[in-house]
Amino acid sequence: MAQITLIEAITQALAHEMANDASVVVLGEDVGVNGGVFRATAGLSEKFGTQRVLDTPLDETTIAGVAVGMAVQGMRPVAEAQFDGFVYPMVDHIVCHAARFRTRTRGRLSCPLVLRVPWGGGIRAPEHHSEANEAIFTNVPGLRVVMPSSPSRAYGMLLAAIRDPDPVIFFEPKRIYRQYKEEVPDDGEALPLDVCFVLRDGTDVTLVTWGAQVKETLEAADALAKEGVSAEVIDVATLKPLDFDTIHESVKKTGRCVIVHEAPRTAGFGAEVAARLAEHAMYDLVAPVERVTGYDTHIPLFRLEMKYLPSVERIVAAAKRTLAAS
């Protein structure tokens, strides 16, 4: 079986579900003949035609609004925001409409769309191409906010997102689009949403993260292991609704927690995880919760961006602080 990257797993999931369900359509800028600027929709136009793989006018508001309209009328649109920084004109339609149709109409209508958002920094891209803006959406009722961090999770979670009856914001950590390959059978098996994945078992400290930071966090766990520290690594994967139980069970065992995310610290989604630990796990903790995050600044242009993103060194140092505290 062929080994594929995360971006190829996205393509594989899209192709699988388009073949499986005639109501699935892909729309966005350059998704057609060009196959997407990241190649996520490569080959789909040839396979499924220009009506189901639709190059839209260059207007994010249009993409989001049209996707909402299609979804409400029984289609399963998968819209692409070409880059994270271009998602803002879409927010009105996602927040005011996609997220609300079910509750607004008491279930008469719903809006099962997927908005794919290539996400985050670290690819030496121009301004507005490197945003970690997931927290804008995690505060919105009615949405699912998910972010896979491996080829197999990208495949399984995208299938689940397309099949989900509610709107899903599907963040794709573009820094690890091509980081490594995995065997991902095209078996149409969706992974569950709304659950965290424990990627590595450990007993001394829980490292909680999502998206591209899974890479640095796993490396930090390796480094800690060399120093005799056993770190458990959790990929949150679905930020909203949050599977706090998995995080809590881990912290009951380790007594320590480091939350790692790329987005700015203040009111980043790590704050929600930390608040829940404060509410529910105070007596399980033996050390203050640590956060390793982007700074409360804009992500700099690319010469400095790697100094902005959480590094293995910062994660290891934070884990050691929790160990030193008790």
Binding site: V68, M70, Q73, G74, H93
Partner: peptide, 12 residues
């Protein structure tokens, strides 16, 4: 915003 929803319906 309803204009785009109608356009989306028409596309469907």
């Amino acid at each position: 915003t309803q204009c785009l929803h109608a356009a989306g319906a028409a596309l469907a």
